[in-house]
Structure formats: structure tokens, C-alpha cells
Design a protein around this nucleic acid. Sequence first.
DNA 1: CAGTGGTCTAGACCACGTG
DNA 2: ACGTGGTCTAGACCACTGA
Lengths: 235, 235
Amino acid sequence: MERPVYQQIIEDIKKKIFCGELKPGDAIPSENTLCETFGVSRMTVRKGLAVLVNEGYITSIPGKGSFVNEPDFEKYTLYYNEMSTAINTVDSTKLIEVKIILPSNNLQMSLNLSANRKVILVKRIFYSGSEPVAYDEKYLIYYKGMPVVEKEIKYGTFPEMISKFTSLFAIKKELTISAQVPNRQISKYLSLYNSTPLLVVEQKLFNSEDKPIGLGITYFKGDNCRLFASSSFTD
Amino acid sequence: MERPVYQQIIEDIKKKIFCGELKPGDAIPSENTLCETFGVSRMTVRKGLAVLVNEGYITSIPGKGSFVNEPDFEKYTLYYNEMSTAINTVDSTKLIEVKIILPSNNLQMSLNLSANRKVILVKRIFYSGSEPVAYDEKYLIYYKGMPVVEKEIKYGTFPEMISKFTSLFAIKKELTISAQVPNRQISKYLSLYNSTPLLVVEQKLFNSEDKPIGLGITYFKGDNCRLFASSSFTD
DNA sequence: CAGTGGTCTAGACCACGTG
DNA sequence: ACGTGGTCTAGACCACTGA
């Protein structure tokens, strides 16, 4: 009896779900029943069930019982870092410009800005060896007294830039991924002569009150970027 | 005192993490200390801490204590379904062909197939209204007696096709996202005359022993597809 | 050694849902 | 009224880490 009892309960029920003995919608035995079949106290059974609830396998409904969920087969986990994609690591960057601008209407909408609010714009090119692999733009809402540190601007990822003045725990992020053709400007930056497509990743950051605080757009050369995601497992 | 005590403990510690009072690496008070400060039993404190561990905020180390984690700021949750992307829903499909083939070397490698193993190939075009929005290929390893159902082949997503003969809980999935230029064939299928880029999503399915069972590649017209992901929260 | 987290018990009371 | 899950207690023993 190496493994704790609650682990055995977890594995027992998972096995039944995996092999199809328990199907989505089915009820699993009540807690008291499980206490008897495993010969343990209720708290121990509940500890096991809590894990299964947490991993999304079952749902418990007060007064009724616990039931097997429909699997969430559209859900994936994606790791994204503009400086190190799966096939390619950025080992140097070139700062093209940093300036404080009045945002375009589009940007004002996107960042939910009031009229005269200014924004810091940072343009960079990412290199892998001597080859340019991505063009990167960041728009960061400017606050008075905001610490703008050279090193982060030049070498940091977007969350790293932000981390100087907010706890990263409090930040929410959204990614939008699309394929685009490069415009003239970007073609020049990335030395594109043919119609190489771009993988474009837009990253939007929100503070803990769900207000936007920044927007980053990274244009990866198509043959230099792949994003990987895998089904959120579950041990 | 509406909310259960363990919830209050959770919120209390989260608040301290959010506002920076507790930073990554810091120790949180010991369980016995928390028992005293909240005036509850140890199991109640542990229930709260279990949630924080589970959500990735803290890690508990036996004999030492519990510590605030580095935030996992590269992690996102992505929902993917080839039939309904964020800006565009597939409302009809055209089956181009279904056949059983001997896979190419590439495919053999990718699916880890033995020499003479055959594969079912399904080619489809997805439409939104009358407009073709994506071209889709599925390669499914053929097993004797595999139920191949017309309806699923024509209308189903990849996991739905598989679900007829395996529990979806047991399936692992991987996505690879890239940008590509269409080849002649795909340009024809999607009526592309200019150099519209493609957003290409490759979906690989694995059984519970981590052996590949199928590969799906969907080529979305660039202006008809965006993928969204958001930081895995955490309530 | 004293302090930490990990597991577990045998009770208790509650709110909820179904007959 | 009875069974369900949700919360909580006041103990216990263990293995581990650090002084």
C-alpha cells in the first residue's frame, strides 16, 4: 500500500472513464458508497473526488450526486513567448524606434482610451543569428512616472516590460493569431522579396480591472514560426 | 459570514499576491499559523491552500513550507474547432474524396506507422454561406472493422470522427499553427487568385498509449480565420 | 529536536433534491 | 424523510527538513 488511498480512488474512477465503463452523464457512486467500497472515511473519498472535479472529469451537484462530464475536446494549452518560438529562438534584437504618440482611432478603440491619452510605441526587429525573423510593435499606455527601462525595452518580452510596475499575477492576456501578407514596410524590415506570408500574433494585456494596458503585435516570417498547443491534460 | 472560511483564506492570500505583498519565492504562513489567525481547524486551512496550489499560485514543500510561485506568464488557453472559428462558422461542407491510401514517407514518419499500414484520407472543403473558407485533409489510421460513418465524415470535426470508437477522454491532441502560401491545388479549391496567405492548423491525435492515430490539416483562408487564446485564469 | 506539510479518521451540521 | 454533496472539527500518525 504505497500510494495514498485517495490516489487509488482517483485512478480507479479515471480508468472506468477512460475505458468507457463510465460515460459522460453517468452518475458515479455516492460518497458514502465509495467510503464503504474502499473502506475509508468520507474526507478521504472527497479528497479524491475533488481532484477529479478539478481536472474536469466530473461535476458534483449538491443533493443529487456526482456525474461524468462531457470531455472538453476543444480546449488546448498554448505556450507563447514572442522571443522563443518552437523552431527558433531570438538571440538578438534591434530597436528601431521608441516614441510617445497619440494613438490612431483604431488603437484608441482597441485600448479603450480617452481622447488625449498618450501611448508609448516600441518598434523592434528580432534576429536569429543574422537573419531577421520577426518584426514587433508594442503599444503601451503611458502613465506619469512610468519607469521605462532601456534593457527591458530592448530585450524583454511584453509581460517582462510590464512586470516592472505591476504584479504579473494580476495581468490578463489575450492572443489573436492570424496569417497576413506583409506590407511594404514590414517586407523591408524582414528582407522579404517574395510573397512570404506572415504569422501575426497580437497580444493584448489587461490589468486586474480588465482595462487594457497594452497591445503588442509580432509579425513572424512564415517559414520561421510555428506555434504549438496541446490538449490540456490531466496527468 | 456567507462565504465558507476556506474561500476567505483563498481570497486573503490571493489579494496579498496580487498587490505584491507576497512576491514569488516568499513563504506564506505555516498551516498551523493560519489555523490560529483564522481560528479554524487545520483541514479547513488545507482545503484553501489546496485550491491555491491547484491554480498555480503556490507550491507546498513537505518539511519546509508553502511558497509563492513565479507566475506562468507564457501559458494560454486556446479553444479550437475547425468548423467554427471566432469570426466565421462553417455552415456547409463538400466532401471531395474519401479513400484508403498507402501513406507517403512523410506521413509514415509523422504517424509512426509500420510499413504497409493503410490510412483513410478524407478531403473536404468548408463553406461559410457560398464562400469557401477552408480546405481540410484528414489522415486516419485504418483498423479492421473500423466504423466509418458517412455523416461524421461529411460534417464532423476530427475528434467527433474518432469518438465513434474511442472515449474522447483518452485522446491527447496537439496543434501546430503556421502561415503558408497556398499551392496550386488549394488555390483552386478555395478560389484564390491573389496571394492570400493561409492559416494552417495541423491537428494530431494520440491514443492513451501516446501512439498517433490521426492527422488533420486545415488550410484557412487568411482573411477568414483568427484564433483566440487567453491567459489561463484563475477566476 | 521542534516545525513543516501529507494523509486519514469518525464524527457533526447544513442545504439541497426527490419521492 | 432520506440520501446527496458542502463545510468543518479536533484530534492522530507519518516523513521530511533544518538547526
